[in-house]
Amino acid sequence: MAKSIKIRAKEKGGVTTVKALMTHPMETGGRTDKKTGKKIPAHFIQEVVCKHKGNTVMMAEWSGGVSKNPYISFKFSGGAKGDELELTWTDNTGGSDSMTSAIK
């Protein structure tokens, strides 16, 4: 599951813009497999946490309504160039991944 996250964070004028892409199927559990006629079990990211210096700057809770390979972007103030950002996601099956990236 390694490298399922890509992060770009840029600081400009005191505001850091974070953009992140995750690789995940994001199955709602409502779709059926056309070949077998069986329901595809739900498999989606439930929680995304982004931390800057140990402080949570953003925490997202998702349903299966977020698109496959989710993208998020948000802004926060207080970050500086070179600071590390940590992004972690957890899905409904207990899977998770984490990635650290420096602010540019």
Binding site: H52, V57, M59, A60, S63, V66, Y71, I72, S73, G78
Partner: peptide, 27 residues
Amino acid sequence: ASNNPVPLVANFVMGTGATGFVSTRIK
């Protein structure tokens, strides 16, 4: 997304210093 089977798509909780901006892609 008001007409989705499950209307609530996402909730972003803003932490320290976060400003009122979120962008994502939904179904």
